[in-house]
C-alpha cells in the first residue's frame, strides 16, 4: 500500500468514527498531518465543513453548533490549541459547551522539525490547565477515541482534546 493509500485509509477510518460519535460539523485549519483527514471530511456530505483563519474561531464555530444541539469538531495543529486557550477555557468553565478538538500533536519524538518542538512540550499541559480532558491517540488501536470523545465531551459539557500522532493521522512514522 502506498503512503497516500495508507493515509486515505486512516482518514476514512477516523471520519467513520467521528460520524459514529455524532459529529456533524467540522471547522478546520490545515496541518500537513491533517491534510488527508481534512480532504476526507470535505468530501463527506454528511459533515458540514467550515474553513477558518484562526483556530479560536473554529472553536467558537464548533461551540455555536453545540449550542444548537449539533455535535462538532475542530481539526487543527496543536499550535491552534495553544492559540485557543482562552476560548477553550471559557467553554470548559464558563459556558460548558462540548466539542472535540482533533489536533496534530506536533513536536513529539517522531517529529523532525525544531520549530515544532515547543508545541509538543507544552500543549497537553496548557490544555489540561484550561480544563480540557486530554487523550493521546497514537495509532489505529486508539481509533475508538475519535468516536467516544464526542460522547465524553457532551457528558462532561466541555471540550475534549485528542492529541494525535503522525501515525494515528496518516499511518506512517517519520
Amino acid at each position: 500500500m502506498t503512503d497516500v493509500e495508507t493515509a486515505t485509509t486512516r482518514s476514512a477510518a477516523i471520519v467513520d468514527r467521528l460520524k459514529a460519535g455524532g459529529v456533524g460539523l467540522a471547522a478546520y485549519l490545515p496541518d500537513s498531518w491533517l491534510s488527508p483527514l481534512i480532504g476526507e471530511v470535505v468530501a463527506d456530505p454528511s459533515i458540514l465543513d467550515v474553513r477558518v483563519t484562526r483556530e479560536d474561531d473554529a472553536v467558537a464555530i464548533a461551540g455555536g453548533a453545540a449550542l444548537m444541539g449539533l455535535r462538532s469538531a475542530v481539526l487543527c495543529q496543536n499550535a491552534g490549541v495553544l492559540l485557543s486557550a482562552n476560548v477553550l477555557a471559557a467553554f470548559a468553565h464558563h459556558h460548558e459547551l462540548p466539542l472535540v478538538v482533533v489536533a496534530a500533536a506536533r513536536g513529539g519524538a517522531e517529529d523532525g522539525f525544531y520549530y515544532q518542538m515547543y508545541k509538543g512540550q507544552v500543549t497537553a499541559g496548557v490544555a489540561a490547565a484550561a480544563g480540557l480532558t486530554v487523550h493521546h491517540v497514537d495509532g489505529p488501536a486508539d481509533d475508538w477515541l475519535f468516536e467516544k470523545a464526542s460522547e465524553q465531551a457532551w457528558l462532561l459539557r466541555r471540550p475534549v482534546l485528542l492529541l494525535c500522532s503522525r501515525r494515528a493521522l496518516v499511518g506512517e512514522t517519520a
Partner: peptide
C-alpha cells in the same frame, strides 16, 4: 437570545456555528 459573554471575539463564530447547525 444567547448572550455570548466572554471570550471577546467569539460571538461571530458562535453565530456562524449556530446558523449552520440550524
Amino acid at each position: 437570545t444567547f448572550y455570548a459573554s466572554d471570550p471577546m471575539g467569539a460571538a461571530p463564530g458562535l453565530a456562524l456555528g449556530a446558523a449552520l447547525a440550524r
